[in-house]
Design a protein around this nucleic acid. Structure first.
Length: 827
RNA sequence: GCGAAAGUGGCGGAACUGGUAGACGCGCGAGACUUAGGAUCUCGUGGCCUCGUGCCGUGGGGGUUCGAGUCCCCCCUUUCGCACCA
């Protein structure tokens, strides 16, 4: 026992129990135990990126919230598996290594060691025998295996593609990593380049990724973000035939229109009903049809504009406030509804990678097209009349609302919904269009022209093409390269290491060359949760039996900054592995909860402001239990909270009082009133912990302890033992110590002693009931529970103050809400 | 611009399906014990005044209701996503 007879000393208690858990293997599970677990609960939290600065409070907040949930499940009898690992590959680490001049292979292990020390110190229930480090060849061997599985399934392909290029990081960025035209990481304006890239065909799973969202229990904010990102939009793809330049502008001779596949432009629109108002067409500058359309006199201007768009592409396109720019190609196409020849322009507000890269411009009813038409003096006819308009009401701005069609031939008078259907059918009959669903989601570019990642396991052979590295040759080990600096060539640093990339083709034995790109970190983190339970095996990525018992993950806690990328990719990879027969579920996380952000004194924490919370000294001074309790007490877990240094005194004092009270507790019968409060507390905490309702649970426990200690009374053992168990979810060390002092020799977490809620014991006998006169509080009366309206009214009238307010007025009505209030309506 | 969430004491935040607003904690005030305390314990703490258990109070303005922080309409502010997606 620690510190016999004296007060609470967190440092001693915490050291003792962290060592005891280690020695006893309290939180470790062997493969046999994982296989045999009868009541498995996989409690997951997003693994950290091990920075040089050490564990951030944000990490501790998230992990503590997840750990409290895991400990609660364990205290209620589940076999809880709670692993942790390190997401240590990637540009972050690499850039930092470059900055401080230390090789990542030296830097990362140090950071991981430091993180491990800090994580142990916070008292998480981690199974340290099942950790994962994405930079460990024993792990990324299987990351490469995942790549091979996708490759074999035809879901990985290399193609030259316009990609986002960050000139500062000197690498390709995923669309998702470009924020407002700038690099998410270093804020440098992003350029566009054409480089051969590896893509995963996530778009083959788009509709499934969308539909499945209805089947999983996730934070609503997160599923909304996913829906938004997938961006399903229903509309039509319409065919606009090109007009031969020699045919002139006004009328169209059908014979001069060539076959559609060669010389028609397809556009995607959500408003096919407005086609009669399409007075021009706009193509993305990169659109392949531009070359066929451009007239000789326009060629110079077009080339200049395309070059400009290419150079500043993503930056300029993100700015919605700039005036529209564009150039006329000199070519025309035919509006399939009106038969008119309309001019074809190029403009950078049309994006090549959405829809068909071409739009029919309806300036009367699309804000952007209106702006463009105004800028270049193009006609803006009205084809939809709102409730207060007719066919000739002038348009001073684009009208995108509902209305009836006008100036649209046979379709005049139709409403929006029926017009969309009717127009599309009409065009479809003539082969000029069809219904179409479009998505924003793009294929996942997974290659990176950088050093610090797992090499993509492909060998390029002149005769055989891209050949996968045979599974038995995995891992393709990332060589230690002292000069790993990226350069502006767009070629991976590994391409400078001939002795590494020179190899022979696994298929034909000829001289061949390894793929020198490495893969995206989101691939590392896209499947790590599948690996945790199987880390004991080096001959398989995912042990089928253990995986069947433990997955999908029961509860996943993490930040909403990963709402889109990490979670979407994890779902996609899981679906693929399911379809290939490697796992028997297709959604990895049954339940996901996003946690909030911790701010400090009302402001975001940042290094530049110097208001970052450093955990180590706080834990040293107050102990991990107090720190955990305070973090969980700050505010609702899903909203985060405002960290104020003085505030920690509250939880600290609570644990001191808890200690004193429990240590002094006597063997005597529980007090009736106290027992009632106890069961009310058990009821509330048991109900709120599954929902991660931590701050109010802690308040309830504080309130209960105040009741136990009221008037300086000494507690009965039966009054405090259940409290120690409830506190254990938040403050595992002090709870273990007190549990031991209460005479138990088994760990509190193995005993599963969560107190049973007895509603009868929680039930009040008498209640304070409010008495109102005309809705204003005039007194309270004490009544038996479930007192009748008559009894309640009589008692209310007997109250002196109430009687005073009822004098000389007529009571018109009496409202009685049992156990809550009596309201006299007078007048 | 679009979407979502949220505005409650000096502060962080409570308040179940409309029913005693401000639980719990910080801070602050008074007292006790102390050589001392930034320790511990007790009590108090939304505002106002004519200190009555009176009036006003949940971003602002309307409304529904016996009764509104909670429901409806309009407006303001903040935060977070998305951002020329056709």
């Amino acid at each position: 026992m620690v510190n016999e007879g004296a007060g609470y000393t967190p440092a001693e208690v915490e050291k003792k129990w962290q060592e005891a858990w280690d020695v006893r293997g309290t939180n470790r599970r062997s493969s046999e135990e994982l296989r045999a677990a009868e009541n498995p609960y996989y409690n997951l939290m997003m693994f950290p990126y091990p920075s040089a600065e050490g564990l951030h409070v944000g990490n501790i907040y998230a992990f503590t919230g997840a750990d409290v949930h895991g400990r609660f499940r364990r205290l209620t009898g589940y076999d809880v598996f709670e692993p942790i690992g390190f997401d240590a590959f990637g540009i972050h680490s690499e850039n930092f290594a470059l900055k401080v001049g230390v090789h990542p292979m030296d830097l990362i292990p140090k950071n991981v060691a430091n993180f491990t020390r800090q994580l142990r110190r916070t008292g998480g229930m981690f199974d340290w025998s099942h950790t994962v480090d994405t930079t460990d060849p024993a792990y990324y061997r299987w990351t490469q295996w995942v790549f091979l599985k996708l490759f074999e399934a035809g879901l990985a392909e290399q193609k030259e593609a316009p990609v986002n290029w960050c000139p500062s990081c000197m690498t390709v960025l995923a669309n998702e990593q470009v924020v407002g035209g700038r690099c998410e990481r270093c804020d440098t304006p992003v350029e566009q380049r054409r480089i051969a890239q590896w893509f995963f065909k996530i778009t083959k799973y788009t509709q499934r990724l969308l539909d499945n969202l209805d089947t999983i229990d996730w934070s609503e904010t997160t599923t909304k973000a996913q829906r938004n990102w997938i961006g399903r939009s229903e509309g039509a793809e319409l065919v606009f035939p090109l007009v031969d330049a020699s045919a002139g502008h006004g009328s169209v001779d059908p014979d001069t229109v060539r076959e559609p596949d060669e010389t028609a432009i397809r556009v995607f629109t959500t408003r096919p009903d407005t086609i009669f108002g399409a007075t021009f067409m706009v193509l993305a500058p990169e659109h392949p049809a531009v070359d066929r359309l451009v007239s000789d006199d326009r060629r110079g201007a077009i080339e200049a504009y395309r070059a400009e768009a290419q150079r500043t592409d993503l930056v300029s396109r993100q700015k919605t406030d700039k005036t529209k720019t564009g150039v006329f190609t000199g070519g025309y196409c035919r509006n399939p509804a009106t038969g008119e020849a309309i001019p074809v322009w190029i403009a950078d507000y049309v994006l090549m990678d959405y829809g068909t890269g071409a739009i029919m411009a309806v300036p009367g009813h699309d804000e952007r097209d209106f702006e463009f038409a105004t800028e270049f003096d193009l006609p803006i006819p009205r084809v939809v009349a709102g409730p207060d308009d007719d066919a000739d009401t002038p348009l001073t701005e684009a009208y995108a609302g509902d209305g009836v069609l006008v100036n649209s031939g046979a379709f005049d008078g139709l409403g929006k919904v029926e017009a969309i259907r009717a127009v599309t059918e009409w065009l479809a009959e003539r082969g000029m269009g069809e219904l179409q669903v479009n998505y924003r989601l793009h294929d996942w570019c997974i290659s990176r022209q950088r050093y610090w990642g797992p090499p993509i396991p492909i060998i390029h052979c002149d005769a055989c093409g891209a050949v996968p590295v045979p599974e038995e040759d995995l891992p393709v080990v990332l060589p230690r390269v002292e000069d790993f600096r990226p350069d502006d060539s767009g070629i991976s640093p590994l391409a400078r290491v001939a002795e590494w990339y020179e190899t022979t083709c696994p298929a034909c034995g000829a001289d061949a060359r390894r793929e020198t790109d490495v893969s995206d970190t989101f691939l590392d983190s896209g499947w790590y949760f599948l690996r945790y339970p199987s880390t004991d095996f080096d001959d398989r990525a995912i042990d089928p039996e253990i995986t069947r018992n433990w997955l999908p993950v029961d509860c996943y806690v993490g930040g909403n900054e990963h709402a889109v990328l990490h979670l979407m990719y994890s779902r996609f990879l899981t679906m693929v592995l399911h379809d290939l027969g490697h796992v028997d579920f297709d959604e990895p996380f049954t339940r996901f909860r996003a946690h909030g952000l911790i701010i400090r004194d009302g402001a975001k924490m940042s290094k530049s402001k110097g208001n970052v919370i450093v955990p180590d000294p706080i834990i040293e001074q107050y102990g991990a239990d107090t720190f955990r309790l305070y973090l969980m007490f700050l505010g609702p877990f899903d909203e985060g909270g405002d960290y104020r240094d003085e505030g920690i005194q509250g939880p600290f004092g609570f644990l001191h009082r808890l200690w004193d009270t429990v240590v002094a507790a006597e063997d005597k019968p529980a007090d009736g009133e106290v027992e009632r409060k106890l069961h009310q507390t058990i009821g509330q905490v048991s109900e709120q912990l599954p929902e991660l309702g931590y701050n109010t649970s802690i308040a309830a426990m504080m309130e209960y302890l105040n009741t136990v200690r009221a008037g300086g009374r000494t507690a009965a053992r039966a009054e405090v033992e259940p409290l120690v168990v409830m506190v254990a979810a938040f403050c595992p060390h002090i709870a273990e110590e007190l549990w031991e002092r209460l005479g138990h020799d088994q760990s509190i977490f193995d005993a599963a002693p969560w107190p049973e809620f007895d509603p009868e014991k929680a039930r009040e006998q008498r209640l304070e009931v409010a008495v109102q006169v005309n809705g204003k509080l005039r007194g309270t009366v004490s009544l038996d529970v479930d007192a009748t309206a008559e009894v309640a009214e009589a008692a209310a009238r007997a109250d002196a103050n109430v009687a005073r307010h009822l004098e000389g007025v007529t009571v018109r009505r009496v409202i009685h809400v049992p156990n809550r209030l009596v309201n006299f309506v007078v007048g």
